[in-house]
């Protein structure tokens, strides 16, 4: 994947299905590692030491197999998804019920 990593800043042709899959696999590895180490937000400084210590290898792999914009996007998405998940869990704990979506107008 050296070819892809070298062009990570100057990508004009979109990654195809196999390249996407390679990127997604690396992403999953990395995000799993974050979750395992209770990293809630990879952008926050307080987690940077944990990431460096526990997930350095996965991060390197992730950043080499995905373009920069994707890396940033997936990290952001991880934060949002985590927040959403925790919110839903909180609501469920409080006895909340999920409404069907879209809400039936009739």
């Amino acid at each position: 994947m050296g070819l892809f990593s070298s062009s990570s800043d100057t990508a004009t042709v979109a990654p195809n299905r196999s390249k996407r899959q390679v990127c997604w696999d690396a992403r999953d590895e990395y995000l799993n590692c974050l979750e395992k180490n209770n990293v809630l937000n990879p952008f926050e400084d307080k987690y940077s030491s944990v990431i460096k210590k526990e997930c350095a290898q996965q991060e390197k792999e992730f950043e080499s197999k995905c373009v920069k914009s994707w890396v940033h996007y997936f990290k952001e998405k991880y934060v949002v998804d985590l927040k959403r998940e925790r919110f839903l869990k909180d609501m469920e704990a409080q006895g909340g019920q999920q409404l069907p979506f879209p809400i039936d107008k009739k």
């Binding site: 979109a14 299905r17 373009v67 914009s69 997936f74």
Partner: peptide
């Protein structure tokens, strides 16, 4: 969509 779409478009 767009071809560089990370996950949703594909």
């Amino acid at each position: 969509g767009f071809t560089h779409c990370p996950d949703i478009c594909p």
